[in-house]
Structure formats: C-alpha cells, structure tokens
Design a protein around this nucleic acid. Structure first.
Length: 211
DNA sequence: ACATTAAGTGATT
DNA sequence: AATCACTTAATGT
C-alpha cells in the first residue's frame, strides 16, 4: 500500500485530500517496535510524529530516572507538546516512546508553519489534539479535587467543632455539601469513608468528631 | 401506620 | 467528582 493510501485510510475523514498529499510527499511512514524511543528530552526535534496505528506514550523522566507518563497517543493523534515547538528548532521537553508496536508518520517540523497557513483541516487537526489533551487534563483535575475533598470535609468539621465548642456537630450531609459546593452524595460517601477510618462517627443529623 | 426527610448505594459519565 | 435512580433508616404527626 503506498503512503498516500495509507494516510487516507487513517486520516482521510479529518484531513483534506491536498493535505494528505502534502503529508505523503514530505513525510515518511515508519514502523517501530514496542519500547522504541524516538525522542528524548533535550533532543532537537526535527520531525513531528503522528500516530497512524498502535500506541505511543509521552513521558517525562525526572532526576531520579523515574518515568512519569504524561499521556498516551493512539491513532490519529499527535503530540501537542511537539506542536508547540513548531517551526523553531527547539529542544524536546519530553520522551516519546512506543507503548506497543506502532506506525508513525514523521513530518518535518520546518514545514509545519506552511501547513498551518495553507490547510484549514490541519488547523482543525491541531485543535482536535489540543482538545483531547485538555479533556484529559480536566479529568486529572477532577481526581485531584476528589482527593482533596475528604480533607476539606474534615477541616470543615473541625472548624465547626471549634466554633460550636462541641465534638458532636449537628448538621446534615446536605448542609455540608452546600457549604463546600459539592453534592450530598459525595459528602455522604466521604463521611462514610472517614467513619471507616475511625475519624468520625455518623448519626442522623449529627456527626461526632474524634481526635 | 404513614409521610417526610436524611443518609446509603450502585451504576454511569 | 457529579448525577441519577433507588433503597433504607430515622423521625414526626
């Protein structure tokens, strides 16, 4: 199968004919085995990778050599981090590694400005990629907030306990939810969790604070 | 006993 | 974490 057809098959529904043509002539398609690393932090990025099949991961390695996965890229996805490098030959902030055997389209970075200028569907493609990342980002934000909510509830109870000068706080889950602008269900669940941890004891309309 | 309101749960997004 | 859709438990009348 020639390059043009392969690209058309994977990206045909989001990229225009002309753009595919350009990608086919200027880019190259290459197979990589699982575990292959094609970009390392500090490398000068000359080609932007777009995943055609398989999965790649973008990781950041810290000073201790610990790998932290930033995100995975599946087919039709390109690394947003490499977009930002754009025309300027900048150094990579990340490592780019194959999570599975994968096929990539590698496109010269110095031609990207041209793509952005000439092809609306390329701009759309870039936005779409940014969007995917943003969604992921919001998801992780949610989990971060989630992890903090139980602490917020505990703090809230301690504050109430101090203010009312009693360990037995008369309050409903709904009221706590309103004050912390979350839902009653969430409060109930986290309170239950705190109860299991032995930090509080639950009653109807009352919460006893240990400690 | 019955209705009302608070709290608990599982499944989904 | 939020929301939905129930279920269950506690209380008031």
């Amino acid at each position: 199968m020639d390059k043009q057809h392969k690209l058309e098959k994977v990206l045909g529904d989001i990229l225009s004919e002309k753009l595919l043509e350009n990608l086919a002539t200027n880019g190259r398609i290459e197979q990589f085995e699982e575990g292959t690393q094609i970009i390392s932090r500090g490398d000068e990025v000359k080609e932007i990778p777009i995943v055609l099949s398989g999965t790649a991961k973008v990781v950041r390695t810290d000073d201790n050599g610990e790998e932290h996965i930033l995100f995975y890229l599946n087919e039709k996805e390109a690394c947003t981090a490499t977009f930002s490098i754009c025309s300027k030959a900048k150094k990579s902030e990340i490592d780019f590694i194959m999570e599975t055997d994968a096929e990539l389209l590698l496109y010269p970075v110095h031609l990207m400005d041209y793509l952005t200028k000439e092809f609306p569907s390329w701009r759309y493609f870039v936005c779409r990629n940014y969007n995917n990342r943003m969604k992921e980002f919001l998801d992780t934000m949610d989990t971060i907030v989630f992890m903090k909510m139980d602490q917020r509830i505990l703090k809230y109870l301690e504050k109430a306990s101090k203010a009312l000068n009693t360990k037995m706080i008369t309050i409903t889950h709904q009221e706590i939810a309103n004050d912390l602008s979350t839902s009653r269900v969430v409060v109930s669940r986290l309170l239950k969790q705190l109860e299991h941890e032995g930090k509080i004891k639950l009653y109807r309309n009352r919460i006893e604070l240990f400690q």
